[in-house]
Design a protein around this nucleic acid. Sequence first.
DNA 1: TGCTTATCCGATGAGTATAATCGGGTAAGG
DNA 2: CCTTACCCGATTATACTCATCGGATAAGCA
Lengths: 141, 141
Amino acid sequence: MMISSRGRYVLRVLADLAQHSGGEYIPMKDIAERQEISLKYIEKIMPVLTKSGMVDGLHGKGGGYRLNRPPEEYKIGEILRLTEGSLAPVHCLETGASPCGRADRCSTLSMWRRFDKLANEFFDSVSLADLLPPPPHDPET
Amino acid sequence: MMISSRGRYVLRVLADLAQHSGGEYIPMKDIAERQEISLKYIEKIMPVLTKSGMVDGLHGKGGGYRLNRPPEEYKIGEILRLTEGSLAPVHCLETGASPCGRADRCSTLSMWRRFDKLANEFFDSVSLADLLPPPPHDPET
DNA sequence: TGCTTATCCGATGAGTATAATCGGGTAAGG
DNA sequence: CCTTACCCGATTATACTCATCGGATAAGCA
């Protein structure tokens, strides 16, 4: 399994936020219940999202979390790179990784590079909006 | 990092086998030295490859390992699915995984399915032969 | 029959990361 | 000042990866 629970949970939380938010703040308690995720666990992960500016968190009564962009502008790749650290298939392709001394004679490196590009492009082509259920059909038809 | 050392090592070992073998058996000691991989560690992984019929192992003097197909017929996807167990991005897409009770209302499942397909198709489109260095150029030109 | 080579097998251990819990601290509203 | 809800740190259980060690087994060769 390539993607950790942290990354999977965050995607579902953000999708839930996108779906149920009309600008107001949504408490994590509600989302944790809907998504059947441990409140304490997800509470611990949320600060990563606020610090990166993806969501706003508000304390106290009437508080909770809120997206601060329209769902179309959240690329899944951006979210996963943040929570997973990297989407690279191998260590030597992670950003800031110590360069491998065998890179010049590694038989597999160029394949990993191509896959890395493919994976990043795929996840950057999907947005939060794409994860939402289709809007109810126009009753006219 | 998505791919474990086990998978990465096996690919390099098989590529080395493909490159240096002309039908005879190659001892792991040679390959471990060339690839700078711990002999003891790779020794432990090789039985997976013999049991699956990918390579032949022969004991004793003059022994070692040998591919039993031409390199073109080894798809990287086949090798990685064997050593990694699965290429699935999430647990619920692994073969034989216990079905997730939330599948019908999971907002991310269809995206994971599409990525799973993409990754498997990519690695099935690359063969061991593609990892070998280009053959020496025809001296005529 | 032994000697050498090389695959094979099991037990073990160090190290790391994930997933999760607990208890409390801090900000905001009514 | 009470409730709500985000925030923070410490701790733990678990699992897996990577690797080492010692030896068993098989095969060729003198």
